[in-house]
């Protein structure tokens, strides 16, 4: 942590706060009936998106999942257009056609999130392949849950990406549950990072609730990819505070498990670090929280005030 500039650390913390505030806001807006469909919230996993994306440039790209709000914020999708998209409004980042599970903004390097499990893994390799052809030193980063590593396409792609030495980084967010299915019921192994060995790429595991640890590990992986030294797999162990989707009461979780993880809340860990290192005061934290809160109030006002798309807009955008 000593060798990470203060601005970088504050930037990561601010990003985490913004994600938390955004998701908290969405949670209540959903209950209040502003959001159609369903939502998959990211509270608890903020350190991953924030820590990884702090290493990325605007011309780097990411792929995301059915749980994409945190990745979108961390990659720089403006909170207003993000929220409007989740509302299904015409001012949304996908004009209301994508919705919560498909947010993205290519201007900041995020194609629409892919809600088919593992669907983004090969797409990221393809984007990295293009960068390689084009001799750009941009990097593709793919986020996915531990459940996705049991899809065939994960294995197919890691082999190919390694063989072709692609500038891609695979970020596995291990939050213990694939929807309701605990990792012990879906894996014989306990260390998912070992799967990288089978494809000849480095695999590492970090505490996914420790944003500084995530940042540092991702920095290495991103620098390696950018330098033309090939892909890697980084497993971030974390926990989602809420259910899989809005209707999930988490009855499959053992009693007390969530409470244990709440003690390891990534925001608390980060705040304590910043306070101890005297990089930020309690007042400074309060001010940053208020700023994030204010931003998300404004985002929700923007989304509420935005018009719905005209029905005929359904006919647009099919063909290039």
């Amino acid at each position: 942590m000593e060798n990470i500039p203060r601005d970088k650390l504050l930037g990561i913390y601010e990003c985490m706060l913004r994600i938390r505030e955004f998701e908290n806001k969405i949670y209540y807006l959903f209950i209040d009936g502003f959001i159609p469909g369903t939502i998959h919230l990211y509270q608890g996993q903020e350190a991953v998106a924030a820590g990884v994306c702090a290493n990325l440039r605007k011309d780097d790209v990411i792929t995301s999942t059915h749980r994409p709000h945190g990745h979108a914020i961390a990659k720089g999708v403006p909170s207003g257009s993000l929220m409007a998209e989740i509302f299904g409004k015409s001012t949304g980042c996908c004009k209301g056609k994508g919705g919560s599970m498909h947010v993205g903004d290519i201007d900041v390097g995020m194609p629409p999130a892919i809600a088919i499990v593992a669907g983004g893994i090969p797409v990221a390799a393809g984007m990295a392949l293009a960068f390689k052809f084009q001799k750009k030193n941009s990097v593709a980063v793919s986020f996915f849950g531990e459940g996705a590593t049991n899809e065939g396409v994960f294995h197919e792609t890691l082999n190919m990406a390694s063989l072709w030495n692609l500038p891609v980084v695979y970020i596995c967010e291990n939050n213990l549950y694939a929807a309701s299915t605990h990792i012990e019921k879906a894996f014989k192994i306990t260390d998912i990072a070992k799967r990288a060995d089978a494809y000849g790429m480095p695999g590492r595991t970090v505490d996914g609730n420790d944003a500084v640890a995530v940042y540092s590990a991702a920095k290495e992986a991103v620098e390696q990819a950018r330098a033309g030294k090939g892909p890697s797999l980084l497993v971030c162990n974390t926990y989602r505070h809420g259910g899989h989707s809005r209707g999930d009461a988490c009855t499959y979780r053992p009693k007390g498990e969530k409470e244990e993880w709440l003690k390891k809340d990534p925001l608390i860990i980060m705040e304590n670090m910043l306070l101890e290192a005297k990089l930020l005061s309690a007042d400074g934290i309060k001010a940053m929280k208020e700023k994030a809160e204010q931003e998300m109030i404004e985002a929700s006002e923007f989304a509420k005030a935005s018009p719905l798309p005209a029905p005929e807009q359904a006919l647009e955008d099919l063909w290039a």
Partner: peptide
């Protein structure tokens, strides 16, 4: 349904 992917926004989905 109209020959497009199913869009998210309720107004668009119902139109399709």
């Amino acid at each position: 349904a109209i020959d497009v992917p199913i869009p998210k926004s309720p107004v668009l989905e119902q139109y399709v």
